[in-house]
Simulated assay, not measured.
Amino acid sequence: MSALRLVIFDVDGTLVDSQGHIKAAMETAFQAENLTPPAPEAVLGIVGLSLNVAIAQLAPELDEKAVGRIVEAYKGSFSTMRAADMPSPLYPGALDVLEGLAQNDDVLMGVATGKSRRGLDHILDAHGLKRFFVTEQVADHHPSKPHPSMVQAALAETGVSARDAVMIGDTSFDMDMGRAAGVGTVGVGWGYHGVERLTAADHVIDEFQALPGTLERIWSV
């Protein structure tokens, strides 16, 4: 019998294109503190980190209380967008690939995201994706990426060994997290960090349709 395999997906910048919402929420949050919002490219550079860590990196001069207020304002802005039923769109090919991988009895899928539990639930429910994932790791319960805690928890929950698991993501944080946990890594070129920052990836793909073949190559070694 084949060993179980696990494919762990990042969410923002990998499964869904959430940059519009992220940039808008960050701008609103900084303006609530009468601060100049960070440049859009700086905001995209911290996507994937837990929110408090991300804010602290964007504005290192702020104290902990100010960071906390911006975090809450950001969450409030995102809640407003959720209430308006404005889910971030899936990337082209994402749903087809998830459907295809789900046909394999020996392949399990999960997510490891800097999103909160509430934020992840909104995306999964909006796009009908919850049926695909047997393990869901969110920022509420783990240290920020690139700490390997999320991947380690996904392995423990599924019983899959690290050598049979692969982390899929668009940022250097995802690749470093996967490597720290001892799993394979696949970077995606359509996300927020750019291919030039995915040097820690074992493989880099530029379209979703390339993922199944890449996974086969990884697991055939």
Rank of each mutant, 00 (worst) to 15 (best):
P89G: 08
F208H: 10
D10L: 01
P148M: 05
V134I: 07
K115A: 07
G169F: 05
A24W: 11
A162Q: 04
V71A: 12
R163S: 13
D10I: 01
T158W: 05
V67L: 02
G187Q: 09
P87T: 02
I22M: 13
Q137R: 12
M81I: 00
L129W: 03
T158K: 08
G110F: 03
N52R: 15
V204N: 02
P89S: 06
D96I: 00
Q19T: 07
T36M: 06
E157I: 01
M150N: 07
L101W: 05
F208C: 09
M177N: 12
A112G: 14
A3W: 01
I46M: 10
A73P: 11
G178C: 08
D105T: 14
G100L: 13
P37T: 04
F9P: 13
S220L: 11
A54S: 12
V7L: 07
G128C: 06
V111I: 15
F78E: 14
I168W: 07
D125T: 14
F78I: 14
V71Y: 00
N52E: 14
F133I: 11
E157Q: 15
R69V: 06
F208K: 02
E99G: 01
D206R: 08
D85W: 02
P37H: 01
L4T: 07
V151W: 01
A210D: 15
S116R: 03
A66L: 05
V97S: 09
A112E: 06
K115N: 14
P89L: 03
Q57V: 02
G194D: 10
A126E: 08
H127M: 06
A181D: 12
A126R: 12
S88P: 11
E99V: 12
G13Q: 08
D140G: 00
L35M: 14
T135W: 01
V166E: 10
V134R: 13
V138Y: 02
T113Y: 10
G187Y: 04
D121R: 15
D106A: 12
H21Y: 12
T14F: 04
M81V: 00
L98E: 07
G119E: 11
Q209N: 10
F208G: 00
L215R: 07
A162P: 09
A153R: 12
M150D: 05
G194R: 07
A181C: 11
L90S: 12
A162E: 10
G213R: 08
L98Y: 05
L215G: 10
A83G: 14
M1F: 04
P40I: 04
R131S: 14
S2K: 14
V47E: 11
G169L: 06
F133T: 13
